[in-house]
Nucleic acid binder design. Structure first.
Lengths: 343, 343
DNA sequence: CGGTGTGACTAGACCGGTTTATAGACAGTG
DNA sequence: CACTGTCTATAAACCGGTCTAGTCACACCG
């Protein structure tokens, strides 16, 4: 169509009266050019408005400055989960420092995700990848390990094969949640969790059940959902109409807790007098509802940053072990209180 | 470190007993190779597990299959706004069809954003860009126009210079919101909006004021915020304690409306009996609170898809005009009702 | 039978950088 | 003064594709 003759390294070299090689050396801070020449080269580049063509650069240097992230949750849900954007922004904060960018793709299922990563890796599009939402016996682990994709896994090390994991101790956090509610006198505690297949949901479920047992409480009812607000609402409704109505409910994310609070209000239950609710993640959402939501809170942004740092270590060829980030801790707010007097 | 001799087009060519060129032709669905040969080539490629190196491809074809998107809102906020992820997923749905990917970056301010786009464009990293959140006299317009970056602007055409705009009629929607509330008998209507500088906030503000005037209502109070939940709460608090307390409040997004509902409850006002609240965007959030939130609703996913389609047209060299997507329309739910009897 | 197409295929230039081997200039040294 | 070493700078190979110009075989035509 047009292209007013793109400026290349050659033009800059000509203008500065040097060779292509010299320009390359100057721009990569390498020795081999005098300060005076370097200066001249920078000036020429500035006058011409030149910046190195990254495509050409990565072709010849066999290096690429893009990280891949595929997310495999329904779009509708992603929009709602404050978690992801916060997580992504944490990743970005580290990438930006090193002039890396994040390539994002939403996929429908794990197979599509695996294929995408394979294709990105084979085609040298990405330098490494971030894998999230691990399932038990996750199919991505063997496939992606075998092609040697540098990646860091966000999930419990027991799930992530040989990929270095960045993980948070969900089991301990789940136990703390139960203990806290028990300490408030609650004896019938329920949990509204994520899908059964999902690794961290399973871990929380197990820890939840074990802690209930430890404390001598009857086994709490647990309902698996798809993290979706409306599913959270449905689960809450089902819990609140049951004969053995729980007096406290733990949710696996903030959205479902908000939905739960909505359902409680709709059914005439007062939070926290009739039922205590405990959210998970502690995004800003927990602070703007009424009552405010008590939550298991952690720093999702830092979590993302740590993931990115670990990935750089992996790409750099270091044999990184798994990294544990701080365990979510309880932040009490207005949605939890003493259990109501025995009914 | 290792690299088990990366497979290139040459290896595939050798294995299939043809030249590099033939492999290239076969893989790009171009004529010039017989079906039999094509077949052999594909087999060879499959056996070797080869996929074209996209870096090399874009270098020689001067084409790139990546779209850039820089978002310039504080990370904390992005996580909360259901809008963006939904919007992004709409974009993705179109990109994926054409095997394009989305390069995402969070930036701190418009200057950083401008520089980033310039650098992406000069370095041939992206084929085009999506610009969002236009301000009045947006500095990005002249800078990016002058370098010839193919881009589509999400915002009212009056703000986007010569960039093709994809926009939604906020003025009409804002007027509809006011008219609806007025029809319910509200006479003191307030608005909690976005930052004054932001284009669509300004448009809504103007339309809001104009409609109030048209209906013969006293000028409604409008408060500018940063879209943040806590700011929405603060604004609502300030409105509800004022002498001229409004009986209806329109918010510029869902989060602030949720926060507003929280504040109302905290202050003992019943929604919608004492005060009606109207959200904007209508994410799932509006359906899970209690009461549910009435909202100006639109299809953000399709919006994103339309933006992507328009961008492809621009990249393809078509002189696209601006495209208008459907105007947000009112979806009444539980947070709006007749105005309380005259106090 | 020579001339003209046409389709299949190849050699090699090219994209815009990086990197290596090498040349030249100059200073220091025995 | 020849000899070595250091520093600056260059030419050319290279990365892995695309793409143009051209070769070749074969059929078709007058």
């Amino acid at each position: 169509m047009n292209s007013p003759a793109r400026i290349t390294i050659k033009d800059v070299a000509a203008r500065a009266g040097v060779s292509k090689g010299a320009v390359s050396l100057a721009f990569n801070q390498k020795p081999g050019v005098s300060d005076a020449t370097r200066q001249r080269i920078f000036e020429a580049a500035k006058e011409l408005g030149w910046a190195p063509n990254l495509t050409a650069r990565s072709l010849s240097s066999q290096r690429v400055d893009i990280i891949g992230l595929a997310l495999c949750r329904p779009a509708r849900l992603l929009g709602l989960e404050p978690f992801y954007m916060d997580f992504i922004s944490g990743i970005e904060s580290v990438l930006a420092d090193r002039s890396y960018s994040l390539l994002l793709r939403l996929v429908r299922d794990l197979d599509e995700e695996t294929e995408l990563y394979k294709s990105w890796w084979r085609s040298q599009t990405i330098a490494g990848a971030i894998l999230v939402d691990f399932h038990e016996d996750d199919p991505r682990v063997p496939s992606l390990q075998s092609i040697g994709l540098p990646a860091v896994a966000v999930g419990h090390p027991s799930l992530t094969g040989s990929f270095p994991a960045v993980w948070t101790d969900d089991a301990t956090a789940a136990a703390e949640a139960v203990r806290y509610l028990a300490a408030l006198g609650h004896r019938r505690i329920a949990r509204v969790g994520g899908p059964v297949g999902l690794g961290h949901s399973a871990i929380r479920a197990t820890a939840f059940a074990a802690t209930m047992r430890d404390l001598g409480l009857e086994e709490g009812r647990q309902i698996a959902t798809g993290f979706d607000g409306s599913e959270g609402a449905r689960a809450t409704r089902s819990l609140l109409v049951s004969a053995e109505r729980p007096t406290a409910i733990v949710y696996d994310n903030d959205i479902m807790a908000v939905a739960g609070a909505g359902v409680a209000a709709e059914m005439g239950f007062v939070v926290p007098d009739d039922v205590s609710l405990l959210a998970w993640d502690d995004s800003q959402l927990c602070r703007i509802t009424h009552p405010t939501l008590s939550a298991m809170s952690h720093d999702v942004h830092s979590f993302g940053a740590q993931v990115a740092r670990t990935l750089f270590a992996v790409i750099g060829g270091q044999h990184t072990g798994s990294v544990q980030v701080p365990t979510p801790s309880l932040t009490p707010r207005g949605s939890t209180a003493q259990a109501p007097a025995r009914s």
